[in-house]
């Protein structure tokens, strides 16, 4: 009997509490008349950033593509004459993208980043397909100063072997000195 009363009391309290919300202000932001505040890490339109040297950060490693739960990223690796990897094409089908940000998390070079821009409506779905030239921005985005190739051991133009972070100068294989 006590349990039943308690249950009834609980229901009544619920009703009362909800009723009290008559006097609380609404949380709705009337977009588009009012623009909401979006944090810098808000997950909106995806961009490809550049490293401090102005080169593409993306090395076409395909990790974003494999992390993507809706498989909306397709790219192809190619290489410049100095051995630097970059994307031959890089395509995001935003009509499939769910803005989950897993690509950004998977990216080992901070190349792919989500931005607070979410206003991406189109009348033609085909316009939601972004190619590399649409994705690439000229800035560094959220991680200024990071350059993958100056951490990685691969030699590229203007960065020889042994010049990366924490690397000793290349070994002279022909030397017998200790």
């Amino acid at each position: 009997m006590g349990m039943i009363l308690k249950a009834i009391w609980s229901q009544l309290v619920t009703l009362y509490r909800v009723l009290l919300h008559t006097f609380t202000p609404t949380d709705t932001v009337s977009y588009p008349e009012e623009m909401p505040y979006l944090a810098p890490r808000y997950r909106g339109r995806i961009v490809l950033t550049r490293d401090p040297g102005g080169e593409e950060r993306c090395v076409a490693c395909n990790l974003c593509a494999v992390a993507c739960p809706v498989d909306c990223i397709a790219l192809q690796k190619t290489e410049d004459e100095h051995g630097r990897w970059y994307a031959d094409f890089f395509r995001i089908n935003f009509s499939r993208c769910v803005m989950c940000g897993l690509c950004e998390e998977a990216c080992p070079t901070y190349a792919i980043q989500l931005t607070p821009d979410f206003e991406m409506c189109e009348y033609d779905r085909q316009n939601m397909v972004y190619e590399k030239e649409h994705l690439l921005i000229s800035g560094q985005g959220k991680y200024p100063g990071y350059s993958f190739y100056h951490v990685a051991g691969k030699a590229i133009k203007d960065k020889d072997k042994g010049e990366s972070l924490n690397e000793a100068t290349p070994i002279d294989v022909r030397s017998l000195l200790p």
Partner: peptide
């Protein structure tokens, strides 16, 4: 396997 919904999106979405 990745890229299923973007591989041919340049031709048709």
């Amino acid at each position: 396997s990745s890229g299923r919904t973007a591989m041919s999106a340049d031709i048709s979405v």
